[in-house]
């Protein structure tokens, strides 16, 4: 489903199918089991909850996704992000905090692997 460029919504937006927004939304967006795409023309001032969020336009507000948040080149997020996976492209704007809740086993700090670039520094401090 698409919300077109000329559409302005103020209030709560919820649903059970994937949604692309090219218009303006202010308030709250709740698509807990679906993918929300903010198109290049989309402007959102809202708390956002979705399974996955793809940002090509502008979002002001906190974004919570159960799977992934993807801020593409020229996409903009001004707010905090909570999601197990977050991708921020080169050229994207982001101002806020990212909380990637740990899922599964934490990777242990690996020792240096032979053949990989090795530190050439010299320890000079205690």
């Amino acid at each position: 489903m698409n919300i077109g460029k000329s559409v302005i919504i103020k209030g709560e937006l919820s649903g059970s199918e994937d949604l692309t927004i090219e218009g303006h939304v202010e308030g709250r967006i709740d698509l807990k089991d679906n993918v929300l795409t903010i198109g290049p023309n989309g402007k959102i001032k809202a708390e956002v909850f979705a399974k996955a969020v793809v940002v090509l336009g502008e979002v002001t507000g906190n974004v919570t996704a159960s799977e992934k948040v993807d801020i593409r080149d020229n996409g903009s997020v001004d707010g905090d992000i909570a999601s197990p996976r977050v991708a921020i492209a080169e050229g994207a704007h982001f101002r806020g905090a990212v909380d990637m809740q740990r899922s599964g086993v934490k990777p242990a700090a690996k020792p240096a692997v032979p053949g990989q670039p090795q530190p050439q520094g010299q320890k000079v401090g205690a």
């Binding site: 994207a92 905090a97 909380d99 990637m100 809740q101 740990r102 934490k106 990777p107």
Partner: peptide, 30 residues
């Protein structure tokens, strides 16, 4: 769930790296 403050410009792959390594919250303050 440590909190990290990153004083550099946002680098998406760094956010992913620290998030996956530490399960942390990262605040970017450029």
């Amino acid at each position: 769930n440590p909190l990290i403050l990153d004083l550099g410009p946002v680098v998406g792959s760094n956010v992913t790296f620290f998030g996956e390594q530490l399960g942390c919250r990262i605040r970017v303050e450029d």
